[in-house]
Design a protein around this nucleic acid. Structure first.
Lengths: 106, 106
DNA sequence: TTGACATGCAACCAAATGGTTGCATATTAA
DNA sequence: TTAATATGCAACCATTTGGTTGCATGTCAA
């Protein structure tokens, strides 16, 4: 479980938009997802492949269509294993920073 | 306040390592941060500039040294405003996905 | 069966990214 | 003052990224 793939996948605004879109309506086909994107279908396909690679999206082929489903597990892992670490000491770090700034810029 | 800069900054493993390093010991100088990195000081400088641009790191010049401090606020914002959205419906989305998978692959 | 529709695949391209080397500048210490 | 130290800046380079176009394949409906 690399978490790196998820971080890199989340770096692109288009891909975050795609996740948003699936969050609003899960199980959309490729064409449906392309509807409000300002780029070609092929470009969207590439973004979806990266999301799938990162395990953020799961797909199911149904006839000639392909349905896309959000998988929130990697996002959850980032939240728990990575962000949690920084949150825990958030107030400490903030007060550290404030003290430094106040000391340096009187 | 874009959140986009933070997402892009977090995409690189070296930069996440730098944040980890600052989390372990806050206020390190550039040279101290370079110590355990497998690249030139100039490369680390570029990564730190990106972290600073994304407001994840704040620096204070002290004589000929430059101290780097972690700023957890953008990470917190990502957690609250973006990840929170997906966490809230996590169980729903998961059961949706399971149902679909079970229906399609009997 | 045939045409329309949904998706897949590959080559290509410009721009961004992550790294390097070389040299300049500023500060501290001897 | 001078030498060592800490950082800054710029040019350069290979690879990755994000997009395009063109065409192929598979599936449904008339």
């Amino acid at each position: 479980m690399s978490m790196d793939a998820a971080f890199r996948a989340l770096a692109d605004p288009t891909r975050r938009l795609l996740l948003d879109s699936l969050h609003a309506r899960n199980g959309q086909t490729l064409n449906a997802l392309c509807e409000h994107m300002e780029m070609t279908r092929q470009a969207v396909t590439k973004h979806l492949a990266i999301l799938e690679e990162a395990n953020l999206v799961t797909t199911i082929r149904r006839g000639r269509e392909k349905a896309h489903y959000l998988n929130p597990v990697p996002i959850n892992e980032i939240a728990e294993r990575w962000i949690g670490k920084f949150e825990r000491h958030r107030l400490n770090a903030l007060s550290d920073l404030k003290q430094r700034l106040e000391r340096e810029e009187p």
